[in-house]
Structures are given as C-alpha cells and as structure tokens.
Design a protein around this nucleic acid. Structure first.
Ligand SMILES: [Mn+2]
Ligand SMILES: [Mn+2]
Ligand SMILES: [Mn+2]
Ligand SMILES: [Mn+2]
Lengths: 219, 219
DNA sequence: TATAATTTTTAGATTAACCTAAAAATTATA
DNA sequence: TATAATTTTTAGGTTAATCTAAAAATTATA
C-alpha cells in the first residue's frame, strides 16, 4: 500500500504539475500527453491510484490529488530539485543538463539520503531554474512570479524562474544573458507578434512572445 | 540492444561477483540464491542475456560473462562503489549504512554524472569497505588481500577489506575497533573452533572463525 | 435540443519478469 | 554402471504497465 512504483510516482508528479489553483480537475488526455502514453493506459492507472487513495477519481470527470497524493508528489519534487542543485552546485553541470538526470534520481527513496543531501547543499530554497524546493515536511513556498509577457512598459523585474525546462530554451536564455538574478526593464511590446523589447545590462534585446511567456520575474 | 534494464544489470553484476578465477562457470541456482528468485526465472533471464551477447550460456553448463557483459558489470560496480564513497565522505553515512542505497543508485545511467562524481570525490581508489573502484575505462586493480583466518602466528597485517557487507557484521567490526587501516598481529589460533586471538592497539582480542574468514588484510 | 465532434472508458492483447509443477539432464553413489 | 539425488529446463500461468480498436459518455454546435 505504501510502496509506490516508479510509474505511479511519475503519474502523481504529473497530476501535481497539471493542477493549478484554477483547475477543477486534471484530464486524462493531459496526463497522457505529458507522460507520452495513451489515454487508455492513463485510465487504467487512475483506477489504481484511486484505489490506493492517492487521487480522487470520478469517471469522465478528471482527477485531483488527495492529501496523501499531494504529499507524495511534493516529496518527489523535493528530491528532483535537490538533485538538480547537487548536479549544478557540486558537479558543475549547466542548468540545461540536469533535468533528465533528476527525473531518474527523484525515484531513489531514502529519507535519510535526501535530508542529508539537503543539509550538504546548505538547505537551498530554490533549484537551478528558480523553482522553490519543498522542505522536509513538504511545505512549498511558491513565490508570486510574473511572466515577462504580462509586465508593463517601464516596469523592472529580476529574472527568477522559467516555465520551460528544455535544454534548447535554457541554452538560448544563457546565450542572450537572461540568467537568474538579472535585472530587466520593459521598453516596448510589439502588438503584431507579442514580442517584447527589454533592457538588459543597459542594452536593448528583443524576445519573442514565446520566450516572454516562459520567462518569469519577481517585480 | 544496448539498453539494459534494472533487472538485467542485477543479473550481470551477480554473475560477475560469483565468477572467480577458479570458477569454470556460474550455476543457475547460485544466481537464484543471490537474487532471491527461482531457478526457473534465472533460466529465462539467462536465455535473454545470451541472446543479447552479455553471457556465454550452454544449457545445463552454467554461464560466463562475455567481454561486453564483463564491461557492463564493471561499470555497475564502479557506480555502486563511487556512490558508497559519496555517501560516507560527503553525507556522513556510516560504512554499514550505504550498501542498500548504492544498490539503487548504481542503476542511474549517466557517464557524465559518474565521471563528474568520481572527480568530485578526488578519484578514490577504494570504497568504504576497501573494495577497489574500477576506473572510467573499466580497469579494476584487485589488491591481493589475505583473510585473517589464513594468517600465521606473529604475522602482522593492515585491515584492508571485508568479505561481508551486512550491517550487523560491519557494526561489530567497528565496535571492536577492527576498522580499515588498523594494524593487527596474530597472537594465537585456536584449533578447536577456528577462533583467532589478535593484538590490536596493544591489547588482545579474540575473534571467531567466521569473523576471521571475512576480514581481509594487506600483509 | 438533436446531432456531431471530442474525450474517456472498456475489451482484449502484448511484454518483461516473475511463479509453480513437472520433465529432462547431469552428477553422485551404491 | 545402474539407480538415486540434485540441478536445470520447459510448460503453462500471473501481474504491472503498456497498446489498439471499439463503445460509451461528455461537450460543442447547428
Ligand atoms: Mn527539472
Ligand atoms: Mn528544476
Ligand atoms: Mn556495497
Ligand atoms: Mn562496498
């Protein structure tokens, strides 16, 4: 009952990530998309997870996590993010190289290991992508960040997170100097294509709507 | 073809550990014993591993590793031992607490990760139990160690390894001060039960035949 | 609001890794 | 060296996680 397989853990994490305060319930197809599996397979797993009291599942109505499911998901996310910090801070990985490895490492189950790692890393509050790290009690402080696409002309902000973790996106950000902690100023937004001209390190830089939507700032 | 499952890796590692220079071939039952599975299951897997060219398998005659199987096993062992060093040196685990966790961590597959970890740890040559760590090319230097049970009266030696990795054994060794690096002298061997009286830190200590057989020294 | 489109579930298979029981081969022993 | 004991393999099933195709339910639209 308490044991969760690698696969079950990935489902719970995915349901967590697809749940937002606005979301009523997470859809079967959305889960299938993320996990690159088929809707029929998802339905099978949802029945199993509901049986084990990890999710609330009503046929055709989507799912929500139970408190137990939520805690389990938070624990996996804690492990994922702490391993990412380890890889970047201690093993000198780049921020675009750690996600896939953390997808595997997050399934290593040892409370002692993860709490020791947390201490070894100095109890970091954020991972290399600016995502907050749940503490050992599963408490997560999600800072209120604003996508660049929602910022106003002349508003300044500190780059503090990303919504995309792909290597190709993170590499691009690094190339144009849009790294965590950098201060930016909104100069102009182009209505035609949603691109944004920002001021970074005193010089103008145009970013596409796609980039602006996936780049988060603390304002 | 190149992908090896968690299970296949455990079989290859087990076959490696059961192979000694003297061994002609490893038996089905021996593998089943170590992996706590049934002989029929082992036979199934042996066919699969032979098909993938990891082992030489002749029905009823046991198995040997092919060069490819040997390299794969050495790589898993390299990972296992490096993770053990990490846990002890960096996360302050005791030497009796690391084996089971390393059994999981050894299946994380990333050459970059393991080589970075190796460097981070200062390219250790031995794990916390005195076992040698294969280098990145799979080269393993097995030092010639002597079990205490084979030492002669008045012979001295440095505790350098163990043949048993169970927590209960390692804890006992620690309790009586038989830790890696310690110098011992053989005072007397008791023919009746094979126990051995040794000199350690200037005082006499009796150890059983079982302990003497599982404790290795460099002489 | 009836029909069409979409989403979700069910039915029925497949695969990897395991199992028990029985058959076959090997090894030990009288 | 024939028979007994042991080891190993085969035969036939199970379970978790997946799949495709078809049926059922929900949602969108005319
Ligand atoms: Mn990640
Ligand atoms: Mn991250
Ligand atoms: Mn070990
Ligand atoms: Mn070891």
């Amino acid at each position: 009952m308490l044991a969760t397989s690698f696969t079950e853990e990935n489902y719970l994490k995915t349901i967590f990530h697809l749940s937002t305060p606005q979301t009523v319930a997470v859809n079967t197809n959305a889960i299938a998309d993320v996990l690159k599996t088929k809707a029929a397979s998802v339905t099978d797993m949802l029945k199993k997870l509901a049986e084990k009291d990890f999710i609330n599942y009503v046929k055709y109505q989507g799912v929500t996590l139970t408190p137990k499911g939520n805690q389990t998901a938070l624990n996996i996310i804690r492990k994922h993010r702490l391993w990412e910090v380890f890889l970047v801070d201690k093993l000198n990985f780049k921020w675009d190289e750690v996600h896939d490895l953390a997808e595997d490492l997050e399934h290593i189950n040892s409370t002692k290991l993860i709490n020791s790692l947390d201490e070894f890393l100095g109890f970091p509050k954020f991972d290399p992508h600016g995502d907050p790290i749940p503490d050992k009690n599963g408490v997560l402080n999600e800072p209120a960040l604003l996508p660049v696409s929602k910022m106003k002309i002349n508003q300044t902000g500190i780059i503090s997170g990303v919504r995309e973790h792909t290597s190709v996106f993170l590499n691009y950000l690094e190339k144009v100097g849009l790294v965590l902690g950098k201060k930016i100023l909104i100069k102009e937004t182009i209505e035609f294509d949603g691109s944004v001209i920002i001021d970074i390190d005193g010089k103008a830089q145009t970013i596409s709507r796609d980039v602006a939507k996936n780049l988060l700032t603390a304002v």
